[in-house]
Computed example of a mutant assay.
Amino acid sequence: MSVVVYKCPHCGASLTFDADRQRWECKFCLGTFDKQTLEAYLASQKETNPDLEKPEEPEQVSAEEYVHEQVDEEFNRNARAYRCPDCGAEIVTDATTAATFCVFCHNPTIIPARLSGEYRPSQVIPFKISKEAAQKAFLNWCKRKPLVPPDFKSKPQLEKITGMYVPFWLYDCSVSATLRANAQKIRRWRSGNYEHTETKYYELYRDGDMSFAGIPADGSSKMEDKTMDLLEPYDYSQMVHFDMSYLSGYLAEKYDVDKEGVWPRVKEKVANDAVAQLMTTAKGYDAVQVTHQEVRIKSRKAHYTLLPVWMLMYKHGDKKYLFAMNGQTGKVVGKLPISIKRAIAWFCGIAAAVFTILFIASGVYYL
Rank of each mutant, 00 (worst) to 15 (best):
M325A: 08
L251F: 13
T329K: 12
M311K: 08
S248G: 04
L336Q: 05
K298V: 03
M223A: 13
M239H: 00
L306M: 10
K301V: 04
V309W: 14
T305K: 01
F242P: 01
L312S: 06
H316D: 10
V295F: 07
D218P: 01
L306V: 02
S237W: 03
P233T: 05
E232V: 00
G219P: 06
P233E: 08
E232K: 13
S211P: 05
N326C: 00
P264L: 07
M313V: 14
V290E: 06
P264T: 12
E224D: 14
P264N: 12
Y236D: 13
A324C: 03
D209M: 06
D207R: 06
K226L: 10
S237I: 06
K320M: 04
K335R: 02
L312P: 02
L307A: 07
A324M: 13
D235H: 11
Y234C: 11
K298D: 10
P264S: 07
V240T: 09
Q328W: 00
L251T: 08
P216K: 15
Y236A: 08
V309L: 12
N272S: 15
D209A: 15
K335G: 02
Q293F: 01
I338Y: 08
D207S: 14
Q277K: 12
L247F: 07
D273V: 05
P233D: 07
P233S: 13
K259N: 11
V240K: 14
D225K: 13
V333F: 12
V290S: 01
M223K: 02
I215W: 06
K319T: 11
A213I: 00
M244Q: 09
F242W: 05
N272D: 15
L307V: 09
P308G: 04
E294G: 10
V333I: 15
E260Q: 14
K226H: 06
K319V: 07
A217H: 09
Y234V: 10
M228W: 10
E224P: 02
N326V: 10
D209P: 02
T280H: 09
K269C: 07
A252D: 15
K298S: 04
L230M: 09
S211E: 15
K259L: 12
D273P: 04
V309C: 11
I340P: 01
E224H: 10
A282D: 02
G249E: 15
G327K: 07
H292D: 14
H241C: 07
P308K: 06
R300I: 11
S237N: 13
H241S: 14
S237Y: 03
S221Q: 06
L322N: 01
Y255N: 09
L251G: 06
A287C: 00
D207C: 04
Y250M: 09
D235R: 10
S211V: 15
T329L: 11
G249Y: 13
V257K: 14
V290C: 06
T281R: 08
K315R: 11
R296G: 03
